[in-house]
């Protein structure tokens, strides 16, 4: 197998990572729940693409496994699970963000800047896609913002998943060969189980409160 030009690979990775960031920003302004789930699936697909480019370039077979696991878990299984959950609890109404779209966009712009500032000392690392750390940190920060800005329990789950995507981007891009297989598998299953547990809780909250609005979870204080 002929490794592709390192420059080309680096550009591809940067392009795909930038795509992940764009999708993250779309999720911030997008109000439809089902569209949000689809956007998450596309973002995960881009992540799998980055892993595949890395794997091809370093000729590392176990990084291909990461790409495959990402596609199975985050592009196919989790969106399907979340879709089913949405249908089961019958909510199609729009997400009600606390802040409106322009304000959210502005804040996320600021967070992106912050991500780049924090990552600046490390961008000189001699490695493929060496500015992806900034994007990973930005995904982390905007994921937190999404979580604060959304009230519905299910959208908070989505926000958590985008945070996880950011961490995985860092894992793939920062380490030439990805993490050891056993760690990748551990993370993969943890995420799957986490979403199932969250799904169970969302379902029970919906049953008990007749709503998924987490701002109604306000009895425990002090």
């Amino acid at each position: 197998m002929n490794p592709i030009q390192p420059e080309l690979a680096s550009q591809l990775i940067t392009l795909l990572a930038a795509g992940m960031l764009v999708i993250q920003l779309l999720m911030v302004v997008q109000a439809m729940l089902l569209t949000n789930i689809r956007l998450f699936a596309i973002q995960s697909l881009l992540l799998a693409g980055i892993a595949a480019v890395m794997a091809y370039n370093h000729n590392a077979s176990h990084v291909y496994m990461i790409a495959v696991l990402t596609i199975i878990g985050k592009v196919i299984f989790l969106p399907w699970l979340l879709n089913r959950l949405v249908q089961r609890i019958q909510i199609h109404q729009e997400i009600e963000p606390l802040l409106n779209a322009p304000t959210s966009m502005l804040i996320c712009g600021g967070l992106t800047l912050l991500g780049y500032v924090v990552a600046r000392p490390f961008t000189s690392l001699d490695r493929l896609g060496n500015n992806t750390l900034a994007i990973a940190l930005t995904l982390l920060l905007t994921g937190f913002f999404l979580m604060i800005n959304r009230r519905k329990a299910l959208t908070q789950v989505l926000a958590l998943l985008t945070v996880e995507n950011g961490v995985m981007l860092a894992a793939v891009a920062l380490t030439s060969y990805g993490m050891p297989m056993v760690v990748e598998l551990g993370i993969f299953f943890d995420v799957l189980v986490a979403v199932m547990v969250l799904g169970i809780l969302v379902y029970r909250i919906r049953e008990n409160f007749d709503s998924m609005d987490t701002s109604k979870l306000n009895q425990l204080k002090g």
Partner: peptide, 8 residues
């Protein structure tokens, strides 16, 4: 449920 949600 509220406690569990915050916790998770």
């Amino acid at each position: 449920l509220e406690a569990a949600w915050k916790y998770v």
